[in-house]
Computed example of a mutant assay.
Amino acid sequence: MTRSTGAQSGTALAESPADGPMVRVEDLHRSYGTGAAAVHALRGVSFEIPRGELVALKGRSGSGKTTLLNLVGGLDTPDSGRIAVGGTDLSGLGEDGLLGLRRDRIGFIFQSFGLIPILTAAENVGVPMRLRGTDPGEREDRVALLLSLVGLGDHAQQRPGELSGGQQQRVAIARALANRPALMIADEPTGQLDAETGLAVMQLLRAVVRSEGVTLLVATHDPQLLGFADRVLELSDGHIVEHA
């Protein structure tokens, strides 16, 4: 069980050793709106995620799961508290720094897949490497490897509309791995899939964590999928109420 130790100085957070936790969240607060109408999405959330673990985040709709994922992924900023990813304090990064973090060190998987309809599966997987300026030959080799990893080596030239929901999510997983991220963040990745396909996708994510050595933080409402996690965090009304 991970126990929070309270907020530390920004310097201490930024100088976490390479073998320290992949994610450290300390006393995180995030609200939307002001006054009596304010919604307190997160109220003093603290936890750590060791490197190479699959951690599931559960909680009912509106409990703050997506808000927390967006903050850890550098897509949003907290009202107070600190977040470190791989020893880097996000509060010390400007917009360019956060962009680089998201491009190079974090992979995102969304419930809606987020694929570009006019591009083939291979082209979708290659997008992050194009943005990074990866050599075309290296990019093509990496795309082929990743599509093979997710079981879609024979579907490289198909567009999203020609693929099933489960296949589209597999393409999205391959794309999230394109730039060899240290951390992957998945928001309800099986939410649009039937139970059998969702189970297969979670089995794939579990295998990816082991084979690629990445850390995965995944939000899910499906109790069946929690068994794949090394640890489960439960959010309720903006608080962590359970570490299992």
Rank of each mutant, 00 (worst) to 15 (best):
G165R: 00
I185R: 08
E162W: 06
V171R: 01
E162S: 09
R170L: 06
Q169P: 01
L146Q: 00
L149R: 12
I185D: 05
A174Y: 01
A174N: 07
L152G: 02
V171Q: 00
S148R: 14
A174H: 02
L152K: 07
I173T: 13
P189D: 13
Q167L: 06
Q158P: 00
I173V: 15
R159A: 04
E188T: 15
R159Y: 06
A176M: 11
S148L: 03
G161N: 09
V171H: 03
L163Y: 09
M184E: 00
E188M: 13
L147M: 02
I173D: 05
R180G: 10
S164D: 02
R159L: 05
Q158W: 04
R170E: 01
L146F: 02
G151D: 06
Q168W: 05
A156I: 03
H155G: 01
Q169V: 11
E188K: 14
Q169Y: 12
L177E: 03
S148M: 03
L183D: 08
A176Q: 06
E188A: 13
D187W: 08
A176C: 12
I173E: 08
Q167N: 08
M184T: 01
Q168E: 08
L147F: 02
V171P: 04
D154M: 04
E162L: 02
L177A: 06
G165M: 04
S164L: 09
N179Y: 14
L146N: 01
M184S: 08
D154R: 13
G151F: 06
L146M: 00
E188H: 13
Q157G: 12
A172C: 11
R175E: 05
L183G: 04
A156P: 00
P160N: 03
Q167E: 15
A182G: 15
A176N: 12
L163P: 04
R175W: 06
R170W: 10
A176G: 15
L183K: 11
A176F: 08
H155L: 05
Q169L: 10
Q158S: 09
E162M: 13
Q157F: 00
Q157M: 08
S148C: 04
N179R: 14
E162K: 11
L149M: 11
L152C: 07
R170I: 09
R180S: 15
Q167G: 03
G166C: 04
R175F: 12
